[in-house]
Simulated scan of single mutants.
Amino acid sequence: MINFNGIITDKPEFSSYNRGMLYGDAVFETVRYSSGKISFWEDHYFRLMASMRILRMEIPMNFTLELLEAELLKTINASNLKDKSASVRLTVTRNAGGKYLPEDNNVSFYAFASELNDPFFIMNEASYEVDLYKDHYLNADLLSTLKTANKLIHVTGSIFAKENNLANCLLINTNKTIAEALNGNLFLVKDNHIKTPPLTEGCLRGIVRKQLIDILEKIDTYTFEEAPISPFELQKADELFITNSIMGIQPITKYRKKLYTNLVAKNLLGKLNAKARLG
Rank of each mutant, 00 (worst) to 15 (best):
E71D: 08
N175W: 08
N18M: 09
L166T: 02
G6Y: 00
D83A: 01
K162T: 09
K258P: 10
R53H: 13
L216D: 13
F160Y: 15
I7G: 01
N168K: 05
E226F: 02
E29N: 14
S245V: 12
E125G: 09
K11W: 00
L188K: 06
Q235A: 07
L269P: 09
T75C: 12
T148L: 06
K190A: 01
E58H: 05
D191V: 01
L240Q: 06
H154I: 05
G184Q: 06
L138V: 09
L68C: 11
K74M: 05
G24Q: 11
S35V: 00
A167P: 10
E115P: 08
I213T: 11
K236E: 12
E125S: 11
L234N: 03
E180N: 12
F40N: 03
V155G: 03
C203E: 05
D141N: 15
P231Q: 09
K266G: 02
L212A: 03
R19F: 10
T156K: 07
L240P: 13
Y23R: 01
T221W: 04
N183C: 09
P60V: 03
N185V: 04
T9A: 00
G206V: 08
Y100F: 15
L143W: 09
E13K: 14
A50F: 12
F224Q: 06
T196G: 06
L138P: 12
I76F: 04
V189H: 14
Y128V: 01
L68K: 01
R53Q: 14
G184W: 04
T148G: 12
A276E: 13
M52Q: 11
V189M: 07
E226T: 08
N139H: 10
I2G: 02
